[in-house]
Amino acid sequence: MHPQLHIPDGFLSPQISLLLWVASAVLLGAAVRKTSRSDVQLNASQPILMGVLGAFIFAAQMFNFPVATGTSGHLLGGVLAGFLLGPWAGTIVMATVVGIQALLFQDGGLLALGANMFNMGIIGTLGGSFIARGIGTALGGSRGVNILGAGIAAWLAVVAAAGFTTLQLGLSGTTNVAVGLPAMLGVHALIGIGEAMITVAALTFIAQTAPDILSGVASPPQASPARRLATGLVIAGGVASLASLFASADPDGLEAVAEQLGFLNAGVAAPFELFPDYTIPGLDGTTSTIAAGVLGIIVVIVLLLAFARIARSRAKS
């Protein structure tokens, strides 16, 4: 059960590919500025550590977690990377890993790389890490609570990355969101449990065996009770909306939704124009409300946490 998140070329429309390349480039640019302005979390010098830990994430994805005979889970590692290196450096490492997977192993396409970096790097690592920190902050910030937060965030990150992958495929007209989204979310809700368990176990192991290495990591400053409450509410809202998505994803209901939807007659994008006024299949009616809502909430959470962080670091300097 490898997470099915490496989109090959051909499945995304050029418009969506380009859009996500731009989004990833902008956010990675921000990450580069953040890390070169010393977001150094660990003692070794940053680029060397990032490079070697990129190879580590790559290799760690090989470790299988036997679920039942013939079935095993694998790690994606975004939140783990973010926890060990800090959200921004972790995001660069994860985006680099995804890029190398595309270039060297043909795991994911080159044009689709922007989307893959967005889903696994930006959503899965940056978003996941800030959620992990948010949970840690909301619950008081002890070591154990931070690791627990990383576990919950690891689950959310895998599920959210799967959701974004499906939405992008749906916007490209390659998949049916009404059927694809619940299927992808369902499968990745299971895969995410493995991700969460492995992430927690790995961090616990490191905390037990080499507490000195973790000492500089992931201890966000003490937050005020109001801030803790606010962080907790935002995250609870995000989780609740994801959960409601599952609740709405029962097969019978979907059939009805599929009937209603306009994507049955949706036009295919005119591919020679980069920005045609093409209709968006699947984003119509009930599903679009749910999908757009979740997308919106996740984007808002990520942005809020990012802004809060930027504001804090501004205030300090």
Partner: peptide, 16 residues
């Protein structure tokens, strides 16, 4: 899961 996590953690310490 703990075993797999320990493998991941061990590999991290070796990489580190």
């Amino acid at each position: 899961a703990r075993t797999t996590g320990s493998l991941v953690g061990s590999l991290f310490l070796r990489a580190y």
